[in-house]
Design a protein around this nucleic acid. Structure first.
Length: 427
RNA sequence: GAAGAAGUACUCAAGUGGUUGAAGAGGUGGCCCUGCUAAGGCCAUAGGUCGGCUUGUCUGGCGCGAGGGUUCAAAUCCCUCCUUCUUCGCCA
């Protein structure tokens, strides 16, 4: 959500940004907001003047009543009542205009960073850099769930029975590996100075509508029946929700948090891709990182954050690349965003495992997250990035550490979390 | 989950419809007094947010947990919700 002042003062810049994102159908919104805003402010001024009058005259009534001059008071009452009716008319219009402005402001995209490559959709995303050395395999690498099954590590059939498609039982060393990766990722981020946080896994509808659009909510969120509660789709929801409508001390910045949570997603409309395995599922666990910082520091943090993910994957022998989101593929709230993709030797391609985003002040503005600085309050910048989301990253993990005999090498960094075990073998 | 009580600013707190332009105290900051310390005195302390233009040491609206309602007028009366405390219940 951009600053409406930008539309008042520099609508052309906002329009140019919309063109860069190939959303020309939204160009008209800028002029609409400009007109609605003028109308709103004029109405607001009129209503405020009326309220001011009413306040003044009402006070006179109080004074007259105090002096016992009832008749005079009654006369003035009638007068104020008229003003009250006029105010009521304005008050009927005010929220309507406000809503019209807000619904347009919510879909006008954030101003993207000058460095973002211009492109229509995800096909024009740009590979930035590859990291790590791809291991050469002279044997076939099985499908990831086949690897898991061969190690007695997964039971999809039972999960389908108890919960349906998109759920899994992880068992034995694979389940342990899953937990080990999360624990390692947590400690890795703590080592970078981040504060570990376990947030609520359910949030109120008020928070949900704050952090996402109605459409996203319908497609993603599970609702608890009979309660005003939703299962979170990512810990970012409760992590950022924590700061809604707060004023924070500047000396607490930057706030660097790493959170763990299970994530629940309906995945409505996601069909065809990797449905068989654990690539896209209704329930998974994720370690996340969140940064709230001064505006001038957000790009530095952005670059540090994706790099943290890259290094984490490299430490587990998984080659990765960074892929920058082009203008057209960038979500409307984001200033700049890139994915970290892991190498799949089986498919001979990279696939998304992390998504790092700089939202600028758009999220702060929308959620009223403010910072009390020396020269008044300002909106901080917010960023988020995946540290690791094990079920999906297990795919890359198992493939890249797979040996011809069907065993899995456990990288050194994970061994302490696996009781010193160096390999996963069939039992 | 049940019953009762409460929610006012940095903190405590007065306030049952109209000089409340939210008292008072503590704390904090500034100044005075003082050889130093303690004590004391004076002053400031409602932030936030949205507007207006004459851009100011200006001005108006909103704002007493949140949202509605009643009224000429609401911190005050009514309704819904949230939170906290007490007691009971349940529970890893």
């Amino acid at each position: 959500m951009i600053d409406i002042k930008l539309i008042r003062e520099n609508p052309e810049l906002v329009k140019e940004n919309i063109r860069k994102k190939f959303q020309d159908e939204k160009l008209v919104l800028v002029d609409e907001v400009k007109a609605l805003d003028e109308e709103y402010r004029a109405l607001r001024t009129k209503a405020d003047e009326l309220r001011s009058q009413r306040n003044a005259i009402s006070k006179q009534i109080g004074a007259l009543m105090g002096q016992g001059k009832k008749e005079e008071a009654e006369q003035i009452k009638a007068e104020v009542k008229k003003i009250g009716e006029q105010i009521e008319e304005c008050e009927l219009e005010e929220p309507k205009l406000e809503e019209k402005i807000r619904e347009r402001m919510l879909v006008i995209p954030n101003i993207i960073d000058a460095s973002v490559p211009i492109g229509k959709d995800d096909s024009e995303n740009v590979e930035i850099e590859q990291f790590g050395t791809k291991r050469t395999f002279d044997y076939e690498i099985p499908y990831h769930t086949d690897i898991m099954e061969s190690l007695n590590g997964i039971d999809l059939d039972s999960a389908r029975k108890t919960s349906g498609n998109g759920f899994y039982y992880l068992t034995g060393d694979i389940a342990r590996l899953h937990s080990a990766i999360l624990a390692y990722a947590r400690d890795y981020m703590v080592g970078k100075g981040f504060t570990y946080c376990i947030p609520p896994f359910m949030i109120r509808s008020e928070v949900v509508t704050g952090v996402m659009s109605f459409k996203e909510m319908e497609n993603m969120m599970y609702k608890i029946e009979g309660e005003d509660l939703y299962l979170i789709g990512t810990s970012e929801h409760s992590m950022i929700g924590r700061f809604i409508d707060t004023i924070n001390d500047e000396n607490k910045l930057p706030m660097t948090l790493t959170s763990y949570s299970p994530c629940f997603r309906k995945e409505v409309g996601a069909h065809g891709i990797e449905e068989r395995g654990v690539y896209r599922i209704h329930q998974f666990e994720k370690q996340e990182m969140i940064v709230i910082c001064k505006p001038e520091e957000s790009m530095d943090w952005y670059n540090k954050m994706w790099r943290y993910s890259v290094d984490l994957f490299l430490s587990m022998n998984i080659p990765v690349r960074t892929l920058e989101c082009c203008s057209g593929d960038l979500a409307d709230l984001k200033v700049k965003s890139c994915d970290v993709e892991a190498w799949s030797p089986r498919q001979q391609k990279y696939f998304e495992v992390c998504s790092c985003s700089n939202l600028g002040d758009a999220q702060s503005r929308r959620l009223k997250i403010r910072v009390k600085g020396e020269n008044g309050n300002y909106l901080p910048h917010t960023l988020n990035n995946t540290v690791v989301a094990p079920p999906r990253m297990l795919i890359a993990f198992l493939e890249n550490n797979y040996n011809e005999d069907g065993t899995i090498d456990i990288p050194e960094v994970l061994q302490p979390y696996m009781g010193g075990q160096k390999k996963i073998v069939k039992k």
